[in-house]
Design a protein around this nucleic acid. Structure first.
Lengths: 212, 212
DNA sequence: GGATTTCTATCTACCGGTAGATTGAAACCT
DNA sequence: AGGTTTCAATCTACCGGTAGATAGAAATCC
């Protein structure tokens, strides 16, 4: 049983993110996440993970008692990690618009790297066959993102960069919905440009209709 | 083997849609579709279908040789059916805006009735573990919808109802992406209002920024 | 410091259950 | 009677999960 898992030696970003996991556990999480994002929760087995990591399926159970546990750990980590990236990118960008562009490029990178979708979108689609614990964590993930976007958008309005009707929160929901939907469409069309152009147009629209 | 399947006695809408299927086959398709839209392709089994329809799993194989065949038939029917509904609603609505509202209410109905997502979105998410035949049909489904939306939006621009930058096609992609994403978010939030408000805002935005 | 004990991480072997699929016979229809 | 449809029985492959053993590192004892 995984009583009190301690880390051995991980580096840089991982250091702070996966502090509670040792190297094997991290590898399991990495592989599992890639599998969920490309095939969905019900689209892979413990065997798939074991083969890729080079361990036996029983070893996975040592770290994550059930598949639901594994999924829950996955979303928790994803949420945390994306939060850190949002913070980093907020510091790096000089304008609200630039912040939104960098943010959308996080999602674009998923598509480009491995034809993957957002973990949250994937698990929400399969919500009906998932442990409620996973579903709850997924909902929090959406809330996180919309809140952050609403803040950025409100900043943009204050600074005069953005002009729009409705509330910043509503605009945030709209933008996030469009990004998630655009990822689906880009995967269906096998064309990352589909995502990029939609993302760009959405951000442009925030600045008012006059400019293209 | 299902050589030449003929219908026995179906009614109204089904008559034209499922002309190639008899009653059992239609029931299989209906149940399977509901299952895909709530749990995903990999989230249900032949047993699930058989139990609900009241038949044996072997009977499903009689009509659809493989699970992939079943899924392909599902998307083909979905595509056809949604096409008919779009046509019907285009005749019923007096304005482009109204047409878009009725169109979005088709998706809202899915959420309300059974917490279901769009079949196309579901299958696209799981694309990596699906027969290529199914993926192809799903791509066509997206194209159908975007084309139709682009036509409606262009009509709206011509009549002066809509004002926007970019092309009608781009606006159609944006709107469709937002609708698909909004369905995901609404399911995650367990709040159909989340979908409705996003849909409404998207349609309003087409009319220019001045009005809320 | 050396022997003993405990703990960590992993393995092999296996569990009951279920997946999609096949076959061949029975039932049904007309 | 002959085609159509359904079923019961069965298959092979795999699912997630568990049991028990083991090697090696760490902690404890004397």
């Amino acid at each position: 049983m995984p009583r009190d898992i301690r880390k051995t030696a991980t580096s840089s970003e991982r250091e702070t993110l996966d502090e509670a996991y040792n190297d094997t556990a991290v590898q399991i999480l990495d592989v599992a996440q890639a599998l969920v994002q490309s095939r969905g929760y019900n689209g892979f087995s413990y065997r798939d993970i074991a083969e890729r990591v080079g361990i036996q399926t029983a070893t996975i159970h040592y770290y994550f008692t059930s598949k639901g546990d594994l999924a829950a750990a996955l979303v928790a980590r994803y949420r945390k990690r994306l939060g850190q990236r949002r913070d980093a990118l907020a510091r790096a960008a000089e304008s609200p618009r630039h912040r939104l562009e960098l943010y959308s490029s996080l999602f674009r990178a998923l598509l480009i790297d491995n034809d993957q979708l957002c973990l949250g979108a994937m698990l929400t689609a399969e919500a009906a066959s998932l442990p409620s614990e996973v579903v709850r964590e997924t909902t929090r993930f959406f809330d996180d993102n919309v809140s952050w976007l609403a803040d950025v958008i409100e900043d943009g309005r204050r600074s005069g960069d953005f002009v729009f009707a409705d509330s910043p929160f509503m605009q945030a929901r709209i933008l996030f919905a469009a990004l998630e939907g655009a990822m689906l469409m880009a995967r269906a069309a096998k064309d990352v440009g589909m995502f990029s152009s939609i993302a760009q147009a959405m951000i442009s629209q925030l600045q008012g209709i006059s400019d293209a």
